[in-house]
Structures are given as C-alpha cells and as structure tokens.
Amino acid sequence: MTLVSVRDLTIRLGSHTALSGVDLEITPGEIVTVVGPNGSGKTTLLRAIIGAVRAQTGRVERAAGLSIGYVPQSLSIDPTLPLTVNRFLQLPRTRERNLCETALAQAGADGLGERQMSALSGGQFQRVLLARALLEKPQLLILDEPTTGLDQPGSAAFYQQIERVRQDIGCAVLMVSHELHVVMSASDRVICLNGHVCCHGTPDVVASAPEYRALFGTGTQGALALYRHDHDHHHHHHEAAE
C-alpha cells in the first residue's frame, strides 16, 4: 500500500519549470527527506501533494481518505489577529480540550495552550505547528523546512521530536530540509531534488552518489556535505575540499 504516489509530475509556475518528470512514492511509517538547493522545487513538490498547485502533466494520487498533517514553512500571523495556541489548534475543526493537550505534549509544547501565538519563541512556534498537524491524526506528516529560524541545538531537538512522534503514532513523514547533516541520520530515504530527482535511496546511498556530491559537495567546498562525519567513507574528500 502507498499513501501518496507521484507519477511523472511536471509543474510550471509561469514560465519557470519548477518540477519536471518527478516520481515519488511514500509508504506507511517511513521518513522521507527531500533535499535540494534553493529553487529546486522542494516546496512546490509538497504543495502539489497537498493539492495547493496543479500539475501540468503527470499526477499525484493520494490513498483514499488519507489524512495529512501539514506543517508549513512559515506562518506569519498578522499582529492584528489575536490567537491563542488552543484556538489555533482548533482551526478549522473544533477539538476536545484534552486532545489538544495531548497533541501539545506529543509535540513537546506542554502547557502552552493559553499563550498567544505571537508570544511564542521560534522553537515553541514550530512545536505548536507540529501539534496542530498531529491533531489531524495524520497517516502522513508533511513538514516544509520545519526548523527555519531555529539554532542548531534547536533543530536537532526538533528532528528528534519528529522521530519520537513517528514512533508514537506510526505516521509516515515527508519533509523538506536543507540541514542535511542533521536530517539524514533520521531518514529512511533521501530524495535529492533539483527540478528533477537527481538521486534517491537510503542516506548512505545518496550521500555517496555523484549527483548529490555535485550538488552539495564541490560547489560549496564540501561545507554542505559535512553530514555524518563519523561514518563517512570519503572523509579525505572533505579534507581535500576544505
């Protein structure tokens, strides 16, 4: 059974081709991470999966009755909009108070329910977004660069939280990230995207793929390919590049 199956997906935004010929399948319970440089179509891919953009060719098939929990890349709440965390969690559907509390606890945001959204720190805000997604009882949790604006320990803690959530409720996770070194250790599969799928597979396979190295290795003097230091078989490449 697959939750989402993307077949030969091509999306043009205006004159720009954001995605071309992308194939992707997500099966229950796995963590799939999409990596790629800025403008590589990562967000567009997620938006196509939730139905926010239309495909020019190809198709996106969601399993019947699939429940998706979505954590957007950013959420700017207009300062004129008063919003408590509890009220935010209940958009658009009313939830029982204790379900909200459970979701907050699962997301590591216990006791924030009565706070104003505008009074949360970056890390708390992301956890509240996660809690709202969990209230959908998701079979698939989709996160778009969920650690934007968090410092390194903050993002590491957030990714650990996501792994715990996956263990707790057994959902599949599809996320986009540029923080390769942190993300990869937690992922079952990595998809390297640059308008099309450059390479994909387990983190180890992708990490040693020449396409991936071309994208993240040499162009950045290896700075972006510093993931999994201790397990890297190509350590000397890094040193040579640095």
């Binding site: 938006r47 139905g51 926010a52 979505y70 957007p72 909009l81 958009l91 989709i142």
Partner: peptide, 10 residues
C-alpha cells in the same frame, strides 16, 4: 486567512 497552504491541507 492564516495560511493558504494550511487551508489546502485541511
């Protein structure tokens, strides 16, 4: 009003 993608996903 909060976020269009959030709305789509719901």
């Amino acid at each position: 009003t909060l976020n269009q993608d959030l709305a789509h996903a719901s």
